[in-house]
């Protein structure tokens, strides 16, 4: 099941998981707009630390209880089932144990990576019981489904991704810690994507008007790999991701290159992607931010469904 675009779920509908968003910045606000549409999640709180925050004011105007009292305040309320952490790695590292102690499942959009990596199109069901899941990186959410689409059909000894994003969509946190992107994404290409070795590259492009997020996935494949099966798997995966990221699109058919001695005798499949944001709160070109919030909502929904199923079986 997926969230339906454009309709707001009735408040107080039974069986929905309750949720809080911590971090009322651009990401937190976009997340809020998406969660307000969810049929499976009832978003109750927006939490920040600055009483003058625009994000808190916006949340109030959307009918959500907002507080600048931080996590201390949250833990004094009727605690939610889920918390979406849209702060910083440092803040999440400080908060993670407190959420866990209160029995709140954390969906972590920061690079803290306390819990296992989750990509909803690939492995969200595997970690539905985890107390804390991490949403990897924007480039990871865009490309790991495609690495998996290839690796579920044929062995992938090496996968490499190139994520190009508009300069304006890279915040100060990303800029100050860009190695976190390359290292975390590389690791997740292996752990979630299923490549034996992963490599990630990120490019910031300042062109105006801002460029829509672009991602390229190169997978090394054996000389005898089944190209038709790979192509079919890639198209099928694109549809899976489109269910929660409507602006996710293949720019062209997968491109196959013949085995090459410079590639250790492997062939190569190249997948060229565009990620246009949904324009919920963030602009459309910021597909990199949209895919993070969309994937987090989807992960939250899958976790909520698993919790419901568990409760029903009791």
């Amino acid at each position: 099941m997926t969230s339906t675009i454009g309709t707001r779920a009735p408040q107080g509908a039974g069986g929905r998981a309750t949720a809080a968003i911590v971090g009322p910045g651009n990401i937190g606000t976009d997340l809020l707009v998406k969660l307000l549409r969810s049929e499976l999640i009832d978003v109750r709180y927006m939490i920040g630390v600055d009483p003058a925050s625009d994000g808190l004011a916006r949340a109030r105007s959307l009918g959500v209880q907002a507080s600048a009292g931080g996590v201390d305040w949250l833990l004094r309320q009727q605690v939610p089932d889920l918390v979406f952490e849209a702060t910083s790695a440092k803040a999440h590292l400080a908060n993670a144990d407190r959420y866990a102690a209160a029995g709140i499942t954390a969906i972590d959009l920061t690079p803290a990576a306390v819990g296992p990596f989750v990509c909803p199109a690939v492995n969200a069901d595997v970690h539905a019981d985890a107390p804390n899941v991490n949403m990897i990186t924007c480039g990871g959410q865009a490309t790991i489904p495609m690495v998996h689409a290839v690796s579920r059909v044929t062995p992938v000894p090496y996968a490499e991704i190139v994520a190009s994003i508009a300069s304006r969509s890279a915040g100060p946190g990303t800029r100050a810690n860009i190695d976190e992107f390359t290292e975390t994404t590389s690791h997740a290409i292996e752990a979630v994507g299923g490549a034996a070795k992963g490599k990630a590259i990120i490019i910031l492009n300042p062109v105006t008007p801002p460029m829509i997020m672009r991602d390229t996935v190169f997978c090394a494949i054996g000389p005898d790999a089944d190209k038709d099966a790979i192509t079919e798997s890639i198209h099928r995966m694109a549809q899976t991701v489109q269910r929660y990221v409507p602006g996710y699109a293949l720019r062209s058919d997968p491109q196959f290159d013949d085995p090459n001695p410079l590639w250790h005798g492997n062939g190569r499949v190249g997948v060229f992607l565009e990620v246009r944001g949904n324009g919920d709160y963030l602009p459309e070109w910021a597909g990199n931010l949209d895919i993070m919030t969309a994937a987090a909502v989807r992960a939250g929904e899958l976790i909520a469904q698993a919790k419901n199923a568990k409760a029903a079986n009791k």
Partner: peptide
């Protein structure tokens, strides 16, 4: 307006 590094484009 592609920049250095965007060889994939």
């Amino acid at each position: 307006g592609y920049v250095g590094g965007q060889e994939d484009m």
